[in-house]
Nucleic acid binder design. Structure first.
Lengths: 139, 139
DNA sequence: CTAGGTGCAAAAGGTTTGCGGTTAA
DNA sequence: TTAACCGCAAACCTTTTGCACCTAG
């Protein structure tokens, strides 16, 4: 677990690099994502956020999440017919969605494998990012 | 291009195997997906469908698409913050989303590579399906 | 004949927008 | 000080639902 101070520095750096402002709300939401890495939806983040910041609005949650994504601190993950989930794990990994429990697991993959995928793209296809979603069951 | 008759047989077999009914609407939507493999959204399918079946409703489009997915004839594809797209190409492949043109390309990948991913899952993780989404630019 | 499917309209669910008030820099 | 940001409510867009009618088997 990274210390609060390290998080703060990381957030402050990333945000100021984009010419944006450091706000309590953005810090709060960043901490929520780091405290419990369970890929919450915006609405779940909203519920948790209101625990200690009762006046925060859902629109602010969306805005802050967008900011964190724009700053490269958080990724969006999408599963079929479900709302967007957010993930603060920036290392290259796949997401495994258990269809029994609904839980989402990070799965580390060989970096070779990820390079392979990039290598198999046709000429002229420039890759900026990738998302590997696996559906299945755990247990 | 597969003939209309072959399509019809394929659809009829897949649907009856699930104990469901063959309807004009389902056939029409299946043909729309096969005629132009551009990963349309439900709304785009709706607009095309109304060209020759003006009374078809959007709810029916969603229902038919769900049926085709349930019968394993079509896959759902999701991109970040966009509506669901549908793809009738069932061979294992990745989807490349060009952020300049908005177009979606099918990219064939080595089957070894896909097996590798399955092999790298932790013990107890049973994979039912996978979706590889690549964001980038073409050209 | 009749369960399953369709069409329509209304509702739900997730996300975005507009705007007056607030705050970080 | 002031542009960026927040909170609130309303709007928006995609998808689902309820129900009366229709139709494939």
């Amino acid at each position: 677990m990274i210390s609060r101070d390290n998080r703060k520095t990381r957030l402050r750096d990333a945000i100021s690099q984009k010419g944006m402002r450091y706000t309590r709300q953005r810090e709060h939401i960043f901490n929520i994502l780091l405290d419990k890495r369970d890929h919450p939806t915006a609405d779940e983040v909203f519920l948790r956020a209101r625990g200690s910041m009762p006046r925060m609005s859902l629109a602010t949650v969306y805005n802050c999440l967008d900011t964190l994504v724009a700053c490269g601190l958080v990724r969006q993950v999408h599963f079929e017919r479900e709302s967007t989930r957010y993930c603060p794990n920036l290392s290259e990994h796949a997401h495994f969605h258990c269809q029994k429990s609904g839980r989402v697991y990070d799965v580390e993959l060989d970096t070779d494998l990820l390079d392979d995928i990039q290598g198999q793209l046709p000429d002229g296809f420039q890759m900026d990012g990738m998302e590997i979603l696996i559906r299945g069951k755990v247990g």
